[in-house]
């Protein structure tokens, strides 16, 4: 029994769960307000928005890519929806037009990312770093550099604030979104092919997987998720502008890394990603409750990313040491190689 417990806390999932428990315990001790209904629902709402973006990012990370442009993409999605909704006087048609236009733009952005990465063969982080600024510029152009404030309580307001059956709509959307993502990743040929592409792109091309098309679809899904998350966020905050979701890239990357997803590709799943989003959401909320200025959020996220990786390296090294009799170590391999030479 005790052996099983130590084994659990030595495993990656055990570490994650214990980390979560520690954070929650600390919060209960220092801030009794933490477990109030209001606060829990505000945590869940924040997680819902970043969780949708994390789902999209997960697809791209699994194929070994990355999308650094999601923060600007979310801002652009929110701005486009805001302009159409407000411009039409908050009619249902205006809302739907804005929604469709934003999704079409998202598909175009994802298409550009995918084509640049596959057909031109450019590194993903360069392409998306560049488009991050292009999209930010686009936000400033469409909003004239000012915030758009909303004051309507119709369909636009409903997207982020409706509560069917008492559960906020963003949380329901998030749950449906993750369920679909998990199904696609786990149970479809497309989803399984993403893992192959991430593991070895050349080999998966040789066994007949359409690597280029599948990669492009993953980038499109990521952009659409970011735009979608941005639209919900704007409807929730009732305002849109260049600063919308400006912390998104830090939060999403932290969630991915804390969730134990290897950025080299070929690994990871929805459970890890959701766990990461949960932990990041709780920590962001804890910082606000403890009165830490929001500027420090990025600092904490940076420390968490580096700390999580350091922990990963430490535990994988320890488990490697235990496995040495089974697997030849790097040293013996090296000496074998030099003997051959």
């Amino acid at each position: 029994m005790s052996n099983k417990v130590t084994k659990f806390f030595g495993s990656p999932w055990g570490q994650r769960v214990s980390l979560l428990i520690i954070v929650i315990l600390v919060m209960i001790l220092f801030q009794p307000k933490f477990f109030s209904l209001d606060n829990v629902s505000s945590i869940l709402l924040a997680i819902a928005i970043y969780g949708i973006m994390v789902c999209g990012m997960l697809f791209v990370v699994i194929i070994g890519g990355i999308d650094l442009s999601i923060a600007s993409a979310a801002a652009l999605g929110g701005s486009i929806l805001s302009i159409f909704a407000k411009g039409s006087g908050y009619t249902v048609e205006g809302f739907i037009t804005g929604f469709v236009v934003a999704i079409v733009v998202a598909i175009l952005v994802g298409l550009i990312h995918g084509v640049m990465c596959t057909i031109f063969g450019l590194p993903a982080f360069v392409v998306t770093l560049a488009t991050q600024y292009v999209l930010l510029g686009a936000v400033l152009v469409v909003t004239n550099g000012a915030y758009i404030y909303h004051s309507d309580f119709g369909v636009f307001y409903m997207l982020g604030n409706a509560r069917p059956l008492g559960i906020p709509l963003p949380i329901i959307i998030f749950l449906i979104y993750t369920a679909i993502s998990a199904f696609v990743l786990g149970c479809t040929t497309y989803g399984r092919s993403l893992y192959c592409i991430g593991g070895n792109p050349v080999a998966s091309g040789l066994v007949g997987i359409k690597t280029k098309i599948n990669t492009i679809i993953a980038y499109i899904f990521c952009s659409v998720s970011a735009f979608f998350g941005g639209m919900i966020l704007v409807s929730m905050n009732m305002m849109a502008g260049a600063a919308t979701a400006s912390n998104a890239i830090g939060s999403v990357l932290t969630a991915i890394i804390v969730g134990g997803i290897n950025l080299a590709g070929g690994e990871g799943g929805i459970p890890g990603a959701i766990f990461g989003a949960l932990l990041v959401g709780i920590i962001n909320n804890a910082l606000i409750l403890l009165g830490v200025p929001s500027d420090y959020q990025k600092f904490v996220q940076g420390v968490i990313i580096i700390g999580a990786i350091a922990l990963n390296v430490y535990t994988s090294r320890r488990s490697e040491n235990m496995k040495t009799p089974l697997k030849p170590s790097k040293k013996t391999l090296d000496s074998a190689q030099s003997a051959k030479l």
Partner: peptide, 26 residues
């Protein structure tokens, strides 16, 4: 960070960039 943790470079420096900006605030 890069040599010891074998982290992808742009992620490692993105994270450390957050840390430096935060330190500047402090």
């Amino acid at each position: 960070i890069n040599n010891k943790l074998h982290l992808t470079e742009f992620v490692a420096t993105l994270a450390s960039g957050f840390v430096y900006t935060g330190l500047a605030l402090i």
